[in-house]
Simulated assay, not measured.
Amino acid sequence: MSKTLKEITDQKNELKEFFGNFVLNLEKTEIFSEIQKNLTDEVLFVGCGSSYNLALTISNYFERVLKIRTKAIPAGEVAFQKVPDLKEEGLAFLFSRTGNTTEVLLANDVLRKRNYRTVGITIEEESRLAKESDLPLVFPVREEAIVMTKSFSMILLSLMFLADKIAGNSTERFSELVGYSPEFFDISWKVIEKIDLKEHDHFVFLGMSEFFGVSLESALKCIEMSLTFSEAYSTLEYRHGPKALVKKGTLVFMQKVSGMDEQEKRLRKELESLGATVLEVGEGGDIPVSNDWRSAFLRTVPAQILGYQKAISRGISPDKPPHLEKTVVL
């Protein structure tokens, strides 16, 4: 079996085990109390590629539930000091799956010199980020494929849960969503399997706020795995220029948001009239899931499946995306 496929499908059952063994125990860890103690009125979230999309999604959720200002910044902009008005101290989360991404390590150095406390987010305990950040948070996830899949979902779930715990919010919703994950996976697989992917060569992912980060990640999965032209936009922004590219071979995934039913219905009708195939992810959608922002950790799964299935339909190995490595070292 493809490494990438195995890691995508692992989520169907591993999410429950991961949630029970790791996420529910986060509050008892020293790292939890250290993050809580070091929270400032503005927190930075820094990463590259999928890790930047993860940082952006988490940044929005921290701001939503903790009522603090956050900034998601590409690591290269911090590493080479191109960020305007960077404060002299604070808290920063740095994301690198392997923990050895050059820009992230350089960003960690820059921020620590400016008296930031840095939280190193990685799945590799022996990585440089785990050793060089002030507060390493190493996730017990094994992922070997070049394309990031299940670790994205699991880290996102963990940090959203952590934010709610710090805020004193109920976390029961996470338990419900994790319980739904096997069914969500099966529905996603069946829906995408029914699409004639040979007839679609343009993928578009639309979402707002936390779901915009999900959409960016979804587009990236399809680019990496299947080499298919893929884009992501804030939902209503798609009308403002990008829809000029819509045609019969366009497949649109729209992440549904509470209170936006009428706007989403109108946009779907408009895009379908231009020849696009439109699928909605969310309450009452083609792939049903709660519209709660907490569902973000599940919402990249359909695109992971899509990227894999499109790659197979094109005779491309999703395990060997051209020009890509698991770790970017400059």
Results as ranks from 00 to 15, higher is better:
Glu88Gly: 15
Asp41Arg: 13
Gly76Gln: 09
Ala163Asp: 04
Glu224Asp: 10
Asp164Thr: 05
Met154Pro: 05
Val257Ile: 09
Asn108Glu: 13
Ala276Leu: 04
Gln36Pro: 00
Val301Thr: 13
Val138Lys: 00
Gly259Gln: 07
Ile8Cys: 03
Ala244Val: 15
Gly282Cys: 04
Ala296Thr: 01
Pro321Arg: 08
Asp10Leu: 10
Ile192Lys: 01
Ser151Ile: 13
Val83Leu: 12
Lys221Ala: 01
Ile155Ser: 04
Val214Lys: 01
Leu91His: 02
Leu177Ile: 05
Asp261Tyr: 02
Gly47Cys: 05
Gly307Lys: 06
Phe184Ser: 00
Phe253Glu: 01
Leu306Ser: 01
Thr118Gln: 09
Gln81Asn: 14
Ile166Glu: 02
Ile123Ser: 04
Gln309Cys: 07
Val78Phe: 05
Glu7Pro: 10
Glu283Leu: 12
Thr327Gln: 03
Ile58Gly: 01
Cys48Phe: 06
Phe18Pro: 02
Glu30Lys: 15
Thr102Leu: 08
Glu262His: 06
Phe203Gln: 01
Tyr52Glu: 11
Leu156Glu: 11
Pro136Cys: 03
Leu274Pro: 05
Leu39Gly: 03
Lys165Pro: 00
Ser96Thr: 08
Glu193Asp: 14
Lys150Gln: 14
Glu176Arg: 12
Pro84Leu: 14
Leu298Pro: 03
Asn53Glu: 05
Phe32Thr: 08
Lys326Asp: 02
Gln36Met: 13
Gly282Ser: 07
Phe185Gly: 00
Ala92Ser: 11
Asn60Lys: 14
Leu236Gln: 07
Val65Thr: 12
Ser313Cys: 09
Val246Gly: 04
Lys28Ser: 15
Ile155Leu: 07
Leu298Ala: 08
Lys37Thr: 14
Val278Lys: 03
Ser234Pro: 06
Ser215Met: 04
Arg173Phe: 05
Ser33Gly: 02
His202Trp: 11
Ser153His: 14
Leu251Asp: 05
Glu88Ser: 14
Gln81Phe: 12
Ala311Gln: 06
Glu172Asn: 11
Glu7Lys: 12
